[in-house]
Amino acid sequence: MSNNRVPTILIVDDIPANLLLLTQLLDGQSYDVRPVTQGAMALAAARAIRPDLILLDIRMPDKDGYTVCRELKADPETSSIPIIFVSALDDIDGKVRAFECGGVDYVTKPFQPAEVLARVRTHLALAQARTALEMANRELQRALAREAELARIDWLTGVYNRSHFYELATHEFAIATRYDQALAICMFDVDHFKQVNDRYGHLIGDQVLRAVAQTAARQIRAADCIGRFGGEEFILLLPNTDTLAGLMLAERLRAAIADLRVSTEQGEVAVTISAGVAGRQPADTVIERLIDRADQALYAAKRQGRNCVVGV
Rank of each mutant, 00 (worst) to 15 (best):
F165D: 04
V96T: 15
G102V: 03
N161F: 02
R152L: 04
P113W: 00
A151T: 06
L126E: 08
K95T: 05
R97Y: 06
A148L: 05
Q128K: 05
S80D: 14
E147Q: 08
Y106I: 03
A129T: 11
E100S: 09
L53S: 07
F173C: 08
L117K: 10
A98K: 04
I153N: 04
R130M: 13
T78H: 04
E167D: 12
D93S: 11
K109M: 06
L144T: 14
P82Q: 04
A74C: 09
P113E: 09
A148Q: 15
A136C: 07
Q112C: 15
D75N: 08
T78W: 05
V159A: 14
C101Q: 08
G103M: 06
R70Y: 05
S163V: 15
R119I: 06
G94A: 15
G102R: 01
Q112D: 15
D64K: 10
A129Q: 10
T170G: 15
M60Q: 07
E115D: 05
L56I: 07
L144E: 13
D57L: 12
D57M: 13
D62T: 05
L126A: 15
R130V: 14
D64W: 11
M135V: 09
I54C: 08
Q141L: 14
R142W: 09
D75P: 01
P76Q: 07
I81D: 01
R130C: 12
N161Q: 04
T131C: 10
G103Y: 00
S163N: 11
Y66E: 07
M60I: 11
C101M: 05
A169K: 04
D57V: 13
P76S: 10
Y106C: 04
L156A: 02
D105P: 00
E100K: 08
H164K: 10
R70K: 11
K95L: 09
H123W: 01
E77F: 07
G158Q: 12
L156N: 01
E134P: 01
F85G: 01
G102Q: 07
Y106G: 08
A132G: 11
Y160K: 10
L150D: 08
R119S: 04
N161W: 00
S87T: 13
R142A: 14
R162N: 14
D90S: 15
A151G: 03
W155V: 08
T108S: 04
G102I: 05
Y66A: 02
D64L: 09
R59V: 15
K109I: 00
T157E: 03
A143H: 06
Q112M: 07
I83T: 01
M135Y: 01
F165Y: 13
E100N: 09
L72I: 08
T108C: 02
R97G: 11
E115I: 12
R138S: 14
H123V: 07
L126M: 11
E167P: 07
D105R: 01
R59Y: 02
I92A: 15
Y160R: 11
L144P: 00
S163E: 06
K73N: 13
I92R: 13
V86F: 02
R142H: 11
Y166T: 14
V96R: 08
A118T: 02
A169S: 11
L133F: 05
